[in-house]
Simulated scan of single mutants.
Amino acid sequence: MRKGVLPVTAGLCVLAVTVMMIALLSGGRQESFSPPPFDAAAQTGAPEVPENAGYGEMDAKAFRFSAAGELEVQDGKTDVWLTNPAGNTVWLKVRILDENGDILGESGLIRPGEYVRSVELNSVPQQTTAVSLKIMAYEPETYYSAGSAVLNTTLKIA
């Protein structure tokens, strides 16, 4: 019985080392980065925003932006009026997050001097709910983060 224990133990050690090496080598792989696309609906200039949208300009220190504070779902989308002022040096995008941090919808990137009116929602809540608008800034060409800002509001269901 003792003569068979040594080969079995040695085999198990070799198997364990092999599994650890495979795990270490495969765990070191990094996924390739896919930059966010530019928003196909982006428009140049300053938008004419309805007064009831709660639209205003915000200063996030590293960048400025304007957005709507009153959101309402209509036909599976909501008007956010995200505006990237011409004086900025960053690209912007917005994500609409529910209370759990799940993404309800997001825009593509917009350049300085552009705005995007609406964001298509991936899922529409059943009732009016608290949401966050996460405005993310990217350095042009490198896509490095230039910071972000979060606005808390509600998403009204029409």
Rank of each mutant, 00 (worst) to 15 (best):
P37R: 05
K134S: 11
E48P: 06
D59G: 01
T89N: 13
G11K: 07
A67H: 14
E120Q: 14
E106Y: 09
E31A: 15
G45M: 10
Q126G: 10
L104C: 10
A60I: 01
T83M: 10
K156V: 07
S132I: 07
P35T: 08
K156W: 02
K3R: 11
M1G: 07
L104A: 13
N152M: 03
K134N: 09
E139Q: 09
Y143N: 10
A67P: 06
F38T: 09
A86S: 15
G113M: 06
V124H: 09
L71R: 03
Y55T: 15
G54N: 12
E139C: 01
K77G: 12
I110M: 09
N84A: 14
M58A: 15
K61C: 00
P7V: 12
Y138I: 01
F65H: 04
D102S: 05
P85N: 04
I103S: 15
D39C: 09
N88W: 09
Q126Y: 04
I22S: 15
K93M: 15
L25Y: 10
L151K: 08
S132R: 00
D59P: 03
F63S: 01
L92I: 05
K156C: 03
E70F: 08
S66Y: 08
G28P: 06
K3W: 13
S32W: 05
G113Y: 06
L104N: 13
L121Y: 02
G11Y: 08
E120I: 10
A16W: 00
V150K: 05
R64T: 05
E114Y: 11
Y115C: 07
A40C: 01
I135Y: 00
A146P: 09
E120P: 11
E120R: 04
S145I: 04
T89Y: 08
E99F: 11
T142R: 07
V90K: 04
D79H: 07
L15D: 02
R64C: 01
T129L: 02
T78M: 08
A53P: 07
Q127R: 10
V19F: 02
G4L: 09
P50W: 11
T89G: 13
Y144P: 08
E57H: 07
P112A: 15
E114L: 03
D98H: 11
A67C: 06
V119D: 09
M58F: 15
S145Q: 07
D75N: 15
R64D: 04
N84M: 15
G76W: 12
M21K: 06
K3H: 08
G101K: 15
T83A: 10
T78Q: 07
S148L: 05
G108H: 01
M21L: 08
D39K: 04
C13F: 13
E72D: 03
